[in-house]
């Protein structure tokens, strides 16, 4: 089928920069980010919509970029972990994860940072239950989640430590 190979043109705003891209319609958003744009901070973990390592923001909402075709995001705004830092200054979420040691090997961290950013943009001062729910789509195999939880709480301005 020629339709599968025909490249399509999409427009995305990625970390604030508008990009026009020509891609295969089958291209997954995570592949576009990592392979075409070299934004390798977004990781591929399970590749089965489970682990959340590939989480990015699409129009401010966290999504699993391994489970979104790039064409589905056409016209949208993408924020990856590379886009959190502004003018050489880390985002409050990044600061809190560093401060609370909310990571060990770091593989899942970009996904947790993006889910936390999405949660705090939606609910500035989440309850403990809202925090647990907000990061339930991200899996960490090192930390046991306690420090991640503290980091989210700290990023929300609560007492994280």
């Amino acid at each position: 089928m020629s339709a599968a190979n025909k490249r399509v043109r999409i427009r995305l705003t990625i970390n604030g920069a508008s990009r026009e891209l020509e891609i295969e319609p089958r291209r997954l958003l995570v592949e576009l980010l990592r392979e075409d744009l070299d934004l390798t901070g977004t990781h591929i973990g399970c590749d089965t919509t489970y682990c959340g390592a590939c989480t990015v923001l699409l129009n401010g909402r966290n999504v699993k970029s391994c489970t979104v075709f790039a064409v589905q995001a056409d016209g949208g705004e993408i924020t990856t972990v590379e886009g959190l830092e502004k003018d050489g200054k880390l985002d409050a979420v990044q600061e809190a994860f560093a401060e609370c040691h909310g990571l060990q090997c770091g593989y899942c961290t970009p996904g947790f940072l993006m889910s936390t950013r999405a949660l705090l943009s939606r609910v500035a001062h989440p309850t403990d239950a809202q925090i647990r729910k907000g990061i339930a789509g991200n899996t960490c195999r090192c930390t046991g989640y306690q420090n991640i939880f503290k980091a989210v709480r700290a990023a929300a301005g609560g007492a994280g430590k």
Binding site: T49, G52, T55, L58, N62, V63, V68, G137
Partner: peptide
């Protein structure tokens, strides 16, 4: 349903 990321899509 599932998790926040899946509910968003």
């Amino acid at each position: 349903i599932a998790d926040a990321q899946v509910r968003n899509m």
